[in-house]
Simulated assay, not measured.
Amino acid sequence: MSTHQVIVRELTTEKEWIDAFPTMNQLRTNLNLDSYLNLLQKMNKQGYRLFALYDEEIVALAGIQMNINFYHERYVFIHDLVTDSSKRSKGYGEKLLQYIHDWAREQGAQYVSLESGIQRREAHRFYEEKMHYDKWCYSFRRKL
């Protein structure tokens, strides 16, 4: 990380969402700009919030949603977490995740939860070893 101020802020305008697309597209490669904006507008109406970590420019993103259920009670689910591929291993992901943890705590959340693709072993090590997440369940889905 560089010496100037690194900040996190919520992206709320279409221009900010467009600025974030190249980074999000590194994680969600199936999206084009139109499908990304269309889905983001719908998700936003359901409580999805997109946060960006800036180091002069967007270097990492976290897409989250506050939820309530029986097993987590009030919690934040991280739908999307990505650091720009040219900026990895510089502490940005950890800084953004810590921000989300603090934000969730301020909102009265009991947990922060996320899912990660089975093949993403490096990400799993980061979540478990560096960020102290517990691997506590499997997630299943069925295409209809």
Rank of each mutant, 00 (worst) to 15 (best):
D34P: 03
T29L: 15
D55E: 07
I64L: 03
R120W: 04
S139L: 12
Y71K: 11
H72V: 07
N38W: 14
D134L: 12
K130A: 12
M43S: 03
K42N: 14
T23Y: 04
F21W: 06
Q119D: 04
K15T: 15
R28D: 02
G63W: 00
L39G: 14
D55N: 08
F51R: 01
I58K: 01
L33F: 04
L96A: 03
A20M: 03
W136E: 14
L39P: 00
K45S: 11
R121A: 14
S113G: 09
Q110H: 12
L81F: 09
G93S: 06
Q5S: 13
E129W: 09
L81T: 02
R74E: 03
D34W: 07
R120K: 05
R88G: 02
D134N: 13
G47M: 08
E115P: 00
R121G: 13
Y71W: 09
E94M: 13
N32H: 10
T13D: 09
G47L: 08
G93F: 00
Y133M: 05
E122F: 11
E128Y: 12
I78R: 00
W136Y: 15
L53N: 01
F70L: 12
G93R: 03
N30A: 14
S2T: 14
A20F: 02
N44R: 07
L114D: 02
P22C: 07
Y111E: 06
F77Q: 01
S85L: 14
K45I: 03
Q107G: 05
E57S: 14
Q107E: 13
H79Q: 08
Q46H: 07
K15L: 09
E73D: 10
D55A: 04
